[in-house]
Computed example of a mutant assay.
Amino acid sequence: MNIDYFTEAWKKDLSELEDTQQFWNMRADEFNNQHGNKQGEQRRQQVIEFLTSRDMLPADAEILDIGCGPGKYSVEFAQKTKQVTGIDISPKMLEYACENAWQHKLDNVLFELSPWETLSLEECGWQKKYDLVFASMCPGISSSDSLLKMCRASKDACFLSGFVERKDNLRDKLHQAVYGKNPDHRWGKNIYYAINLLWLSGYYPEITYYDNEFDHVWPLDKAVELYSHQLKRMTKLSPVTGDIDDKIAGYLGSIAVDGLVSEKVQSKIAWLCWKV
């Protein structure tokens, strides 16, 4: 299999970007709170230590944080390096990012609203601009072009992390209850494609794996909204309405405890870092 095979196999429908923005706007509150808790802080420090041990966060570095979300990594980087630019598709995520940077009194971090998939490095003047191009669990790295664009934006190093395996037991059971079949899991495909494309493009990523477990707890109405949106995205169907929406609400209502829906997620995550 040559590079054309993986380029063809790994594509993203850009017509989904508006829907993607809506989804991450819905999850901005959750992500800001999640990344601010003890477990989120621990995971973040593991990544910081990993990058520091490889001399990827020198004091004079300029960093691009793709899919920065509420800006937790951007804030960490800005406290250690010269300049940070964070981009995200979600306006609500960036509201939190700006607030978090302000709370730390940082003036060396900028946030921009932009989907990475359609961003032009030439128009932004970002070709070979950044010492580190960083994308942590970023759904925007979803094609050959979006991956190799990271390399074109970097003048030294890149970091990418993503799921290799993931078990969402509640979501899988819900999918079975609503559609009568198990979902087609995509976990691991992006990392598999990324490793092969990097190799075939002349880059040799260091790969590190670690196991992770975390919990989701939502009020019932929020859970119905999120799972409805997720199942629609997973099955590529038109917006979930009517009978299907009722099935989702009914199933989640039957398992809710004191008005809350909980799910434990188990996963294996890969960290890829490489020099350009």
Score class of each variant (00 low, 15 high):
T208C: 08
P239W: 01
Y227T: 05
L231R: 03
K222M: 11
V224S: 03
S228Q: 14
T208L: 11
E225G: 00
D211G: 06
V240S: 04
Y227S: 07
V240G: 04
E213W: 04
T235E: 11
L220F: 01
D215H: 11
D221M: 11
L231T: 03
V224A: 06
A223T: 01
H216T: 01
Q230F: 14
L220C: 02
K222A: 15
V217A: 08
E213H: 09
I207E: 01
Y210K: 06
P239E: 04
H216M: 08
E225C: 07
L231A: 12
L226M: 07
S238D: 09
K222D: 09
W218K: 15
L226P: 07
H229Q: 05
T208H: 05
R233P: 10
Y209T: 13
Y209W: 07
T235F: 14
Y210P: 06
H229L: 14
T235L: 02
N212I: 13
L220W: 01
Q230T: 04
L237F: 05
A223I: 00
N212W: 09
T235A: 02
Q230G: 12
T208P: 12
L220E: 01
K236V: 05
R233D: 08
I207R: 00
T235W: 14
A223V: 12
T235N: 07
V217C: 11
M234L: 14
L220H: 03
L226D: 10
M234S: 10
S238A: 13
V217G: 13
H216R: 02
E213Y: 11
L226F: 04
V240Y: 03
L226A: 09
A223D: 06
M234D: 12
V224D: 09
H216G: 00
L237Y: 02
L220G: 07
N212Q: 06
K232T: 09
L231Q: 11
V240H: 08
T208E: 08
E213D: 10
Y227K: 04
H229Y: 14
L220V: 13
K232C: 13
V240D: 06
V240Q: 12
D215Y: 10
D221H: 10
A223S: 03
E225R: 11
Y227W: 11
K236T: 07
I207W: 03
A223Q: 05
L231F: 02
Q230M: 15
Y210Q: 05
V217L: 14
V240I: 13
L237T: 10
R233E: 09
P239C: 13
F214P: 14
V217H: 15
L226G: 13
L237A: 03
R233C: 09
V240K: 05
E213N: 09
Q230P: 02
M234V: 08
T235K: 05
D211C: 10
E213R: 03
E213K: 14
K236N: 09
E213G: 04
S238G: 03
E225P: 08
I207A: 01
R233N: 06
S228K: 04
I207F: 07
H216N: 02
I207V: 14
S228Y: 06
K232L: 06
V217P: 08
P219M: 15
V217I: 15
L220P: 00
L226S: 08
